[in-house]
């Protein structure tokens, strides 16, 4: 992608993403007041994951750039997932 055809995100989109991130930040704090037992961590991780996805897709331009970068990110996440699964072969059966 040359300098001329770089995507310029509108202020509206950027503002909406910012509001979304702020909403999720408040949600992260608010959810600690709800007793979810062992699912507290999962809830926090899901919210953090959503925030990271917003940053990746809009602020880091994954949505507007070549598909290969999206594929690279998905590949990295799959490797990470596989590492977790292999580690849990130990923890689940110990």
């Amino acid at each position: 992608m040359s300098k001329d055809d770089q995507h310029i995100t509108s202020y509206k989109t950027i503002s909406l993403v910012l509001l979304g991130l702020l909403f999720f930040t408040f949600l992260t704090v608010a959810i600690t007041r709800v007793e979810l037992g062992p699912y507290n961590t999962s809830a926090a991780m899901i919210i953090a994951g959503l925030k990271a996805a917003l940053v990746l897709v809009y602020f880091m331009h994954l949505k507007f750039d070549q598909k290969v970068f999206g594929i690279m990110v998905i590949f990295v996440l799959l490797v990470f997932l596989a590492v977790i699964v292999v580690t849990f072969f130990d923890y689940l059966y110990r």
Partner: peptide, 20 residues
């Protein structure tokens, strides 16, 4: 990426993890 556990065969991992 997925072979790190062979450094830990005597550390007390589960049998399933050892075989994997």
């Amino acid at each position: 990426y997925f072979v790190w556990g062979h450094h830990m065969f005597t550390s007390g991992m589960s049998g399933e993890a050892l075989v994997s």
